[in-house]
C-alpha cells in the first residue's frame, strides 16, 4: 500500500470542504472493507484518505409512513439487518443485509460505501432498485436526490460528483400488501460475492399479480429492471407455469457479463431459474415440489 495522509472530518460540511479542495487526489473512506483491498493491491492510490467514521449523524435509520425509510449512508450492514424499522417495513432489505458478505464485513462495511464503490458482485443495489430507492447527495452547493438507477452508472462507476458525498438512502413507504423477495446465487457456500441475484416486489389481489418490479444484479454490470418480465406478470393469475415463463422472459431481456466467475450464458440461465422461484414464492407456490 502506498503512503497517504489520513483526515478525519468531524462534520459533513467539513468533509465536503475537504473533498472540494483536494479533488481527485483524495478518496472517501467509509467502512474501508473494499477500499483497503483496492489500496493494498495499488488499484486505488489516493494521496489523502478522508475517513467519514466520525460523522455519527450519518448512521441513523428512521421510518415514517409519509416519507418511508431513511438510512444514513454510514449505517453498517449489521445495523440494517438488526433495525426494527427495516424488519417491520422493508423486511426484504433486512433479510438481504443479514446475509450479504460475512459477519466481519457486515460489522464494518456501510451501505453508502457499498453503493459508492459500485462493485457489481454485491447485494444491496439490486434490492434497493426493486424498492424504488433514491440517494441524497450533499455537495458544496446543497443537496440533490437521484433515483438509484441514475446513481449507478457502470462497473465501479457512479454519478457521485467530485465534491459530493452520499448522505442518505431513501426508500418510499411500501404499497399496502406488497411483498419483497431477494435471492442471491453463490457458486459455492464459501464464496461471499453473488454471481447473480434478483429482487422482486409484487402487489397482488389473491393469485392475481397487479404490479411487479423485478431487478437483476451481479449478473450485469449494474442492476437492471426486467421491465418485460414485470409487464408479462401484471394482470396474470400466477401459476408455476406463469412463474417459469416470467423467468424465461427475464433471462432473455438482460445483458449478462462474462468473467472468471461465470460466463454470460451461465448467468442468464441462473437468473431465469432464480426469477421463477422468487415469483413462485411470492405467490405461495411450491416450486420445490413441482417438475423443474
Amino acid at each position: 500500500m502506498r503512503d497517504f495522509d489520513f483526515l478525519k472530518p468531524a462534520t459533513l460540511a467539513e468533509a465536503i470542504a475537504m473533498r472540494s479542495s483536494l479533488g481527485e487526489e483524495a478518496c472517501l473512506f467509509a467502512g474501508g472493507t473494499a477500499l483497503l483491498l483496492g489500496m493494498r493491491q495499488r488499484l486505488v492510490n489516493p494521496k489523502t484518505v478522508i475517513a467519514l467514521g466520525g460523522l455519527a449523524d450519518l448512521r441513523a435509520i428512521a421510518f415514517d409512513s409519509q416519507h418511508g425509510l431513511r438510512v444514513g449512508a454510514l449505517a453498517r450492514h449489521t445495523d440494517l439487518a438488526r433495525s426494527p424499522e427495516l424488519r417491520t417495513h422493508t423486511p426484504m432489505l433486512a433479510h438481504m443485509a443479514a446475509r450479504m458478505a460475512n459477519p466481519q464485513v457486515r460489522n464494518q462495511g456501510t451501505l453508502g460505501g457499498n453503493l459508492c464503490y459500485a462493485d457489481p458482485a454485491t447485494d444491496p443495489p439490486t434490492a434497493l432498485m426493486a424498492l424504488r430507492a433514491s440517494v441524497v447527495l450533499a455537495g458544496p452547493d446543497g443537496e440533490r436526490t437521484l433515483a438509484i438507477e441514475d446513481f449507478l452508472v457502470d462497473y465501479y462507476a457512479t454519478a457521485l460528483g467530485a465534491s459530493e458525498i452520499l448522505k442518505e438512502i431513501r426508500v418510499p413507504p411500501p404499497a399496502p400488501g406488497s411483498r419483497g423477495i431477494y435471492v442471491r446465487h453463490l457458486r459455492t457456500a464459501a464464496e461471499h460475492r453473488p454471481v447473480a441475484n434478483l429482487a422482486l416486489v409484487v402487489e397482488r389481489k389473491g393469485a392475481v399479480c397487479t404490479r411487479a418490479r423485478l431487478v437483476v444484479g451481479a449478473a450485469t454490470a449494474v442492476p437492471c429492471i426486467a421491465a418485460k418480465a414485470g409487464e408479462y406478470l401484471t394482470g396474470k393469475t400466477v401459476t408455476l407455469e406463469v412463474a417459469a415463463e416470467a423467468g424465461r422472459r427475464l433471462a432473455q431481456e438482460i445483458t449478462p457479463i462474462s468473467d472468471l466467475r461465470g460466463d454470460g450464458a451461465f448467468r442468464r440461465a441462473i437468473v431465469g431459474v432464480i426469477a421463477k422461484r422468487a415469483v413462485a414464492e411470492a405467490f405461495g407456490l411450491d416450486w420445490k415440489g413441482a417438475q423443474a
Partner: peptide, 8 residues
C-alpha cells in the same frame, strides 16, 4: 468481530 487486515 471484524477482520483486522481490513482495518487501519
Amino acid at each position: 468481530v471484524v477482520k483486522s487486515c481490513l482495518n487501519l
